[in-house]
Simulated assay, not measured.
Amino acid sequence: MATPDFIREIRATAGHQLLLLPGVTAVVFDDQGRVLLNQRSDTGRWSVIGGIAEPGEEPAATAEREVYEETAVRCVAERVVLTQALKPVRYANGDHCQYLDLTFRCRATGGEARVNDDESLEVGWFPVDTLPPLSEFSLFRIKQSLTDGPTWFAPTAGA
């Protein structure tokens, strides 16, 4: 995954210190109720689609852009299903990041699912009852996207 130019510019002065970055996840369903997944080129694992918001970009637009960039599928973000501050990560180059993830349930509106950039090895539609092996991260987001409940978030310590 290429580091966005705006992050490279920040790193030029901030060094490797912890950056809080806006991340977006898109759980995309088609008219048949299948979910769109990609096999990530960095890990080789199947996953829901996601990425980092660019400066000034609305999170829903980020979700829609990332889906198209990675899978050639057009979609519309319908609602926020989850917000979560993820655990900080340290990359091999020393960069330290923490992502604030906003997960959107999205509806496919067009395009043919295919690998559309270097972030995916494969892409495809999967019935929710026959998913490939997925991380808890992806499974939880799919589960939340299938509910009509309120947006999920971690309760505060005093709650």
Rank of each mutant, 00 (worst) to 15 (best):
N38E: 09
P59T: 08
E69F: 09
L86N: 12
R45P: 04
V89G: 07
L37M: 10
L100H: 15
V27I: 10
Y99Q: 14
L37N: 13
K87T: 04
R45C: 15
A77Y: 03
L100I: 14
Q32I: 00
K87M: 03
A92M: 09
F29A: 08
L100D: 13
L82Q: 09
E69Q: 15
V48M: 11
V89L: 09
E64C: 13
A53W: 02
D42Q: 05
Q32V: 00
Q39K: 14
L82C: 08
C75G: 03
V81T: 14
T83F: 03
D31S: 05
A63R: 06
K87D: 06
V81G: 12
Q39T: 03
G50D: 03
A63E: 05
Y91M: 09
I52H: 00
I52V: 12
R65F: 11
E64V: 14
G94Y: 06
A63F: 02
Y91T: 01
V67L: 07
A77G: 11
G23M: 06
V81D: 10
V28C: 12
E70M: 02
V28E: 03
P88R: 08
V27Y: 03
A53L: 13
A72K: 00
G56T: 06
K87V: 04
Q32C: 02
V24M: 13
D31T: 00
I49N: 09
R90G: 07
N93P: 12
R79Y: 06
A85H: 14
I52C: 13
Q98S: 11
G51Y: 01
G33K: 07
A61G: 07
